[in-house]
Design a protein around this nucleic acid. Structure first.
Lengths: 294, 294
DNA sequence: TTTCTGCTGTGCGCTGCTGCACAGGGGTCA
DNA sequence: TGACCCCTGTGCAGCAGCGCACAGCAGAAA
């Protein structure tokens, strides 16, 4: 049953009873309608209509087609109105992806967004791999650093994550607290395992301390923070996280050169939709009140 | 939502994930597929797919279309198999029409046919007007006489209805029984009201007796028979009816010149179907055992 | 009966859709 | 890292399908 257009033509003929009427509704010439019916009947090997001078009367097969195509037309009409409307409504899924390290910065934003737009279901994806917006894997990505992006991606700056060097109280008790980077000799550090990390503070750390001073490495930001809190060494913790951890001792205060920029990335096709725009507005609004961020 | 073929194309792309795959399944060039998608998205004003080098990924709208078109395709496939198969099966409606006068000749045939093919529902239409087979009003018509038929109608002889002249016992008691048509003077007759009737016996009667001898006229065969039985006059009754009426007295025995031919008429398009063929076989078979028919 | 209207049906010329070929790009495998 | 493959995307040429015009016919109206 290929060629759905011929079914649509036959449907209108069955509904209206005349070739001419169907042609007018379909916006084609009545000769086209006749050819469609002839082709369809030939392919089915069965007559759909009784032809007579006053029009076409549907046979049993034609009435069957009428009923089926009737529901099809309604379903397609509903589909079209849903699709046409969905770009204008804030509903359906909103898929957000980011590095897991800023989860507790983003989660409150997404929760309040979902409460503001109850028709939206939020999916928050965090994974080691980078989700691809051009594959439609997410509507919005919040990414750190200044990496290259696909040509069709829309990039907007969101905030700057401040980070300072911290150690646990237990570490300070055992090894003391360096006053500046000139005083780093004999200290041990916690650093990202990713040698090609784009986080400025980790790059600074790798450049500043001796390799053998790095005593603990981990991939995820949470794991690094855990290591610092448990006394594995001195390490960078983002300021918004450190504020919630009274057990941490600030070794060196945040500096501008350590700040990691957060950027919002969307695909150009989805960027225009009201749903994505609503979330971007909501997100930027929330970011204004983020403490410890530049 | 015109152009259902584009929906079908988009459906295959959403299902397979690539333009090339969809093109192969649809049996068209992949350039055509791309153009269909572009046209459909433009008309809907919304992206159905995220394009990337590895193929097309459906957006929410695309997944919505996939689901709708999936059911559509299944419904069309079922429709096609029903239509293709229905010419081969003996099921659905069988619409038979005839003059009401031979109802009790045909009814047993149709009842036994329905019992032999339980999937068939019989509709038996009798009306003053002639049903038109080319309008699809009936599958099979059983008609009397030798009237002209539409060019697309298939005509087959069925049987010859014998008729004789009868009167009621009460009539014979009052007026006597003529020995032949030479003895008709002073008798009264019952005849069809239709002056252009094609029934040979009624034409014979109108030609043979004086107009003022016709004392009772009616349109329907049943009404004429009732009139004869009640003593209104001498009239023609078909032999198969007279056999069931012990109160009738035969005035003149059936003659060959009075016989009315019954013919089966079908439309050429429906004539080929197994259902109609099955009924024709059944009907002709039953007609062989009809008594009082030539 | 005659006229009129609206329908189906078909040959012809043209338009727009389709197929083709090739370019470009990204993923994969050796 | 380089070669290969499969995918998308586009300009161009051919052709299928379309609109057009007219013929024919049947029913309705006068």
């Amino acid at each position: 049953m290929d060629n759905w257009d011929e079914i649509r033509t036959a449907f209108q003929v069955a509904r209206l009873g005349t070739v001419s009427g169907a042609a007018e509704v379909l916006g084609v010439h009545h000769a086209t309608v006749i050819r469609h019916i002839d082709a369809l009947e030939k392919r089915l090997g069965s007559k759909l209509f009784q032809r007579h001078a006053r029009g076409y009367t549907a046979t049993e097969a034609g009435r069957d087609l009428l009923a089926v195509a009737q529901t099809t037309e309604e379903q397609f009409a509903h589909l079209a109105s849903r699709i046409k409307g969905q770009g204008e409504t804030v509903s359906g899924e909103l898929v957000v992806t980011s590095i897991s390290g800023i989860s507790d910065l983003l989660t409150p934003v997404m929760v309040s967004f979902q409460q503001a737009w109850p028709d939206v279901r939020v999916r928050f994806l965090t994974d080691m791999r980078v989700f691809r917006l051009d594959y439609g894997e997410a509507h919005v990505a919040i990414r750190a650093g200044t990496g290259a992006e696909e040509p069709d991606n829309v990039v907007q700056p969101l905030a700057r994550i401040k980070a300072g060097l911290y150690a646990s109280q237990s570490y300070v008790d055992r090894f003391g607290k360096p006053a500046s980077e000139a005083d780093f000799a004999g200290h041990r550090f916690v650093c990202s395992d990713n040698e090609t990390t784009r986080a400025p503070f980790h790059r600074w750390l790798r450049a500043t301390v001796q390799p053998d001073q790095i005593a603990y490495l981990a991939t995820e930001a949470v794991a690094l923070e855990d290591a610092v809190r448990r006394g594995a060494g001195i390490g960078f913790v983002s300021s918004f996280r450190a504020a919630d951890e009274p057990g941490l001792v600030e070794v060196l205060a945040p500096r501008a050169e350590w700040e990691a920029p957060l950027r919002i990335v969307t695909h150009v096709d989805l960027h225009r939709t009201r749903k994505v725009q609503a979330f971007l507005t909501h997100l930027k609004d929330a970011a204004k009140s983020w403490k410890f961020c530049g």
